[in-house]
């Protein structure tokens, strides 16, 4: 698969580091990997570290919105950090900042 996901949970925060390409083929992997985090009642903040994400497709932006929706329904917040300029540009174009906190 074109995305690698590593998760570190510490207290209420889960830090999720992504490496690779977020596209139609990798979104299922990401969702699958995040399931335990979303199911963990002790986690209230999910921090997605995008420093290793080379590119992202529009459908993946949709997936992140739906992920945030699920997280919100489970009393969790989702934030994205360290996205590269190209990915950041796509996120802004998609107005992702209206749904997810982007730093």
């Amino acid at each position: 698969m074109s995305i690698n996901v590593s998760i570190q949970a510490q207290g209420a925060q889960a830090s999720v580091t992504l490496r690779g390409v977020l596209d139609s083929m990798s979104q299922a992997t990401l969702k699958q990997q995040l399931e335990p985090v979303l199911a963990n009642a002790g986690v209230t903040q999910i921090r997605l570290d995008f420093s290793g994400v080379q590119s992202m497709e529009a459908a993946s932006a949709g997936m992140l919105m739906m992920l945030t929706h699920t997280a919100k329904s489970r009393n969790k917040t989702v934030g994205i950090v360290n996205a590269n300029p190209a990915v950041l540009s796509l996120m802004h174009k998609a107005n992702l900042g209206k749904v997810i906190q982007i730093q």
């Binding site: 979104q27 949709g62 919105m65 107005n95």
Partner: peptide, 17 residues
């Protein structure tokens, strides 16, 4: 317009699934 753009992205994501 933002909502319909975001809706189309969510649609694409769910469609793949």
């Amino acid at each position: 317009r933002v909502v319909i753009e975001q809706l189309s992205m969510m649609f694409a994501s769910r469609l793949i699934e």
